[in-house]
Nucleic acid binder design. Structure first.
Length: 598
RNA sequence: CGGGGCGUGGUGCAGGGGUAGCACGCCACUUUUGGGAAGUGGAGGUCGGCGGUUCGAAUCCGCCCGCCCCGACCA
């Protein structure tokens, strides 16, 4: 490809408020935004995307996946049968066709897979199978952000395993678990696996694969001692032994102006962890039903784990309550507690940790007053006890008690043991050996391509631009000619021909532009190897070879092809070594996670 | 959905009641050619939309639309 013929320009600047790695993708002409959360891929970005797709196909085929393609536009009926038409609120984009028929844009493809399975699988002899496609999804996110990190339209590699039973599902799940490490590593992105929320799918097990970075929007909890790793949404911490001190008499104490945990603990000169903090939410327990007041009671310093709270009460929708709503339920914002609240007024969910503590401080539901010697089991009504406090740095690990650490990450992929939910509702059944009809056991596994590209850019850039791995860079070699000297042009042209004929992917900057411009563009685009032909290099009887990250050296003109091929080989070799270094620990991890041989 | 910010040539931005500006990019010519060259000349904008105030609106007011950031949310 000649730069003089390329569609898509580089830019000197991008909007300043965007994420830095995303600014580079914009400036390098990889992607361009059309609307909120909706992007075009320009030829540069599309080439990289194609390379990511190739990696995905190779790895999915390697575990026995069969590629197919399912539609993005789908009839509502399918979604009504699975129940998701009603259970998913605004994220599912709905519209009508010309006949007024309800339609939806696919936000994933479980329904269609189950529908296809119903029609194409009838016997245990037809199982197991793994199918996948790389296809557009649309999720009308309330808020896109971070460039490609969270978009509304995106491409996903989603695969689906079809098995006779749970044991088969576990094999497919394990295969994907390994493949997802391989795929990320081949794309040049280091990832970790964390336990994740199974959500309303109600499956048995789910993992997310995370690229650790401060700009990530997921919060993750790790134990460096035993290896426990979980999304904060599902992270559990160790519980202390119940306190044994006798329960003392409940008393009201005046605490003027102390409406926050910090103020309260300072005023009473107690540790914040001695406070039973009540946080008020409004929860819709069923779609389109009036929201109910929910009190989440957690230790003073803790945040409420919203996913746990949602799961605990089966909420369809959950939001923080306004002071008025708290008041209507009989509470007093800032001085709130479950004390004295009727079952009609509020649903009370308490952190299990607090049931093991004695003589805490809680709100008195009276402005300016709190309660001392508050004992959760004795002094109020509790509807549900669960682990509600979000795991925080230093909390004890549930497995080994060591202090946990908390980090941020980007979810690049997830894997899900679905079970039989979709096969039952959509009739994906098979006959077993004795002629009994059984529901197919399903798993689903997703990787977002745009997000993967964002992770690649985030991991591989410097102050001059992208520094892409050779496995995903849009071109392998940037060929730069300096000046318009006849001999320079001649050597550059012949080098371009020679490399291209040898199958090397070359981006030849043949423009009549100054060297600085050409170097800057090659750097910005992140092309891993650069060949420069210039009057200066000709004086040394050849061309200059330089890695994107590395020092230049001169090579004789009649060895350019050989030198380039060797350097490309070296780059590939180094990347393979890096990939295997990433995969080394995975075998042990698999054994630890699933048991048996890795 | 709440809070904040922004919308002005292709890109990034300034201007903030008197008729549109800078840098980069683009076109032409000349001189240049190892880290975003220089000169000369040029093209390019109904200032997001609609309505209002005013002698006069990019500028003030109202409504709407779009985009970004924080939060809620994120099957």
């Amino acid at each position: 490809m000649r730069v003089s013929a390329l569609f898509g320009t580089t830019r000197r600047s991008a909007p300043g408020e965007e994420l830095e790695s995303h600014q580079l993708l914009l400036r390098a002409g990889f992607v361009q935004q059309l609307a909120t959360g909706i992007f075009s891929y320009l030829p540069m970005g599309w080439r990289t995307e194609q390379k990511l797709r190739r990696i995905l196909r190779e790895e999915m085929n390697a575990l026995g996946g069969q590629e197919l393609c399912m539609p993005v536009v789908q009839p509502a009926e399918l979604w009504q049968r699975s129940g998701r038409w009603d259970h998913i609120d605004q994220v599912l984009l709905r519209f009508q066709d010309r006949r007024g028929r309800d339609m939806a844009l696919a936000l994933s493809h479980e329904e269609v897979v189950a529908d296809l399975t119903a029609a194409n699988v009838s016997s245990y002899r037809d199982l197991p199978r793994i199918v996948y496609h790389i296809q557009t999804k649309f999720r009308d996110e309330p808020r896109s952000r971070g460039g490609l990190l969270r978009t509304r339209e995106f491409t996903m590699k989603d695969s689906y395993s079809l098995d006779r039973d749970q044991a088969g599902l576990e094999l497919a799940y394990r295969a994907h678990f390994v493949a997802y490490f391989r795929i990320a590593a081949r794309a040049g992105v280091p990832v970790v696996a964390v336990l994740s929320d199974v959500g309303v799918h109600g499956g048995n097990l789910a993992h997310e694969f995370m690229y650790l970075t401060e700009v990530g929007e997921d919060t993750l909890v790790f134990c460096s001692s035993c290896g426990y790793a979980a999304n904060q949404e599902v992270a559990e911490t160790g519980l202390p032994e119940p306190e044994s001190e006798p329960e003392q008499e409940l008393e009201e104490v005046e605490t003027p102006g102390a409406s926050s945990v910090a103020e309260l603990s300072a005023y009473l000169q107690i540790d914040p962890s001695r406070v039973a903090k009540s946080v008020a939410f409004m929860a819709e327990l069923e779609r389109a039903q009036p929201a109910r007041l929910v009190l989440a009671v957690v230790p003073g310093p803790s945040e409420v784990n919203l996913a746990q709270l949602r799961n605990a009460i089966g909420a369809v929708d959950l939001r923080t309550a306004t002071p008025e709503e708290v008041g209507r339920g009989g509470g007093v914002a800032g001085y709130m507690s479950p004390r004295g609240l009727s079952a009609d007024a509020a649903i009370v969910v308490a952190d299990e940790l607090l049931t093991r503590r004695r003589n805490l401080v809680a709100g008195a539901n009276r402005t300016g007053w709190h309660l001392r010697n508050f004992n959760l089991n004795r002094d109020c009504r509790v509807d549900k006890v669960t682990r509600l406090a979000a795991a925080a740095t230093g909390d004890p690990c549930r497995n080994c008690g060591s202090p946990l650490s908390v980090r941020k990450g980007i979810e690049y992929g997830n894997i899900f043991q679905l079970g039989t939910r979709y096969s039952v509702t959509l009739g994906a059944l098979y006959h077993d050996e004795v002629g009994q009809q059984q529901p197919v056991v399903m798993g689903s596994y997703g990787i977002g391509l745009g997000r993967l590209l964002a992770c690649v850019a985030e991991e591989h850039h410097d102050d001059r631009g992208l520094t892409l791995p050779i496995g995903v860079a849009p071109f392998e070699v940037a060929l730069v000619s300096v000046g318009q000297d006849g001999e320079v042009t001649e050597l550059a042209e012949s080098t371009y021909r020679e490399l291209t004929e040898a199958g090397v992917e070359v981006l030849f900057d043949d423009r009549d532009a100054s060297p600085g411009v050409k170097f800057a563009d090659a750097d910005l685009r992140g092309i891993p190897l650069r060949v420069t032909v210039s009057p200066r290099s000709l004086k040394a009887h050849g061309a200059e070879l330089k890695r994107r990250i590395g020092e230049p050296r001169t090579i004789p003109r009649d060895t350019v092809l050989a030198e380039v091929l060797e350097e490309l080989g070296a780059l590939r070799r180094e990347e393979r070594e890096w990939v295997s270094s990433q995969l080394d620990p995975v075998r042990a991890l698999v054994a630890q996670t699933f048991g048996g041989e890795g």
